[in-house]
Nucleic acid binder design. Structure first.
Length: 302
DNA sequence: AATCATCCCAACCGCAAGCAC
DNA sequence: AGTGCTTGCGGTTGGGATGAT
């Protein structure tokens, strides 16, 4: 690309990666793991900076990467999470196995954003603070802002726990699940603590925050992946590592992933949103799950 | 067939958080 | 506690692909 190099060193390659570079990077990481990204290029014989190597691996070369068109389930998940989190692509990506933050970000900016002004208009009638660019934009200084921030923070931390709980529920063959992913959160322990905050009108830390060893978002995805791999609820869970690494989703028919355990976690009967995604201009009707989700939040915070 | 316009996505940069010393 | 280094994240850019004229 025509931008200044990300590393000051001369002799560091930039721009598009060659197949040879890809192969060298993959081979090295297969044998040694990535270790320190800073030292990796030299050890792997690559004339790249560590940052570039890391990006290439994470966004393109990782074996569990999922390429191709987004499914309607993935789209609705992105829309819901973006409505909640805004442009926190890494957090959104952590809930979409095999998808990278970069990919989701690109998909949002090139596809969904074009369709969402219509959604924004529709939502705006009832939720004036909704923005396609920033999700739910809260009025600063409002008391609900603090609650929302607190709730969101607790929610992110709860994702790992919910993944675990969901996996356990699945393993117990319990079919009783809430119809909405966020309603699940809402009715979870964290949601309860949030409701208590609202009720008392005072700020307190979520019990999970107090007890968790890390508040980093990535820790959530790490845990999620681990749990899924251990319990069979991920797309790869029933496969050997070799099978998992060569996993190729069926992308042509646009139904990828709907049969995986992960998507059982989501409400696949979200016909309203799915219709929206395929809807021509001017035909947006009800917004189903996303709207009810926002109603849940607003109704509870006001 | 050639040119221009638009779209898509890989890759880059800057910043901030986390960590080690 | 302060400092420097590493890593991860989000915003942005530009080249290639594709479509329109």
């Amino acid at each position: 690309m025509g931008k200044a190099p990300c590393c000051d060193k001369h002799g560091v390659r930039r721009g598009a990666w060659t197949p040879e570079e890809d192969e060298a990077l993959v081979e090295y990481i297969k044998k040694h793991g990535h270790g320190s990204w800073r030292t990796l290029p030299k050890q792997a014989g690559l004339l790249r900076c560590g940052k570039s190597c890391r990006l290439r691996w994470i966004n393109y070369l990782r074996p569990d990467i999922k390429r191709g068109q987004f499914t309607t389930e993935e789209e609705s998940t992105i829309i819901q999470l973006h409505g909640m989190l805004g442009n926190r692509w890494a957090a959104i990506a952590s809930q979409l196995p095999g998808r990278t933050d970069n990919e989701i970000k690109n998909y949002w900016n090139t596809q969904l954003k074009k369709r969402l002004p219509r959604l924004g208009h529709s939502l705006g009638a009832q939720h004036p603070s909704f923005s396609p660019d920033h999700g739910v934009v809260l009025k600063s200084e409002s008391p609900s802002t603090r609650h929302m921030v607190q709730w969101e923070s607790a929610r992110v931390e709860a994702e790992a726990r919910l993944s675990m709980e969901s996996a356990l529920l699945n393993s117990w063959s319990t079919n009783e699940t809430y119809p909405d992913y966020f309603l699940q959160l809402w009715h979870s322990e964290v949601g309860q603590s949030f409701r208590m905050i609202k009720g008392k009108g005072e700020v307190c830390q979520s019990p999970i925050s107090q007890g968790s060893s890390s508040s980093k978002l990535e820790s959530c995805s790490d845990v999620s992946l681990q749990v899924k791999n251990n319990t069979g609820s991920s797309a790869f869970a029933n496969k050997s590592p070799e099978q998992a690494s060569s996993y190729k989703p069926k992308l042509e028919d646009g139904k990828t992933g709907s049969d995986s355990g992960y998507y059982e976690f989501l409400d696949t009967s979200d016909s309203a949103l799915n219709h929206f995604l395929d809807m021509p201009d001017g035909e947006i009707g009800s917004l189903g799950q996303t709207e009810s989700f926002l109603n849940t939040l607003y109704g509870s915070c006001d």
